[in-house]
Amino acid sequence: MEVTTQEFKHCDLITVKGRVDSSTAPQFTKELEKATNNGRYKIALDMSELEYMSSAGFRALLATQRNCKRYNRGEVVLARVPDRIREALELAGFTELFRTFDDTTEAVGSL
C-alpha cells in the first residue's frame, strides 16, 4: 500500500494505491490522520489504483468521515472507485455515507 497527499489551498487530494487490509489499514489510518491532525478536513480520496480493500479499510474511511464532518468542517469524498471495491462498499451500505465521483478534478472541485 502506498499513500500520497497533494495539498490544495482548500482541500487535500489523497491517493491510495495497492491493498488495504488488516495488515496495512493502520498505516492508511495514520496517513488520513496526518491530514486531519493538521486541520485538513476536506479530503478527496483517489482510489483509481487501489487493488483491494477489506472492512479494515472501510473502518478507516468511516472514522475519517466522522471526524471530517464534525461541526460541518469538511467531508471525505471518493474518486474513481474501482468496480469491485465499489460493489463491496455498496454491500456494506457505505456508498450512502460518501459522495463518489468518476473524475478526480470533479471530486476536488466539489469540496
Binding site: 477489506s54 472492512s55 472501510f58 473502518r59 468511516l62 463491496a88 454491500l91 456494506a92
Partner: peptide, 8 residues
Amino acid sequence: IGGLGVYL
C-alpha cells in the same frame, strides 16, 4: 463497524 466482516 463491528460485525461488518461477518456480514460481508
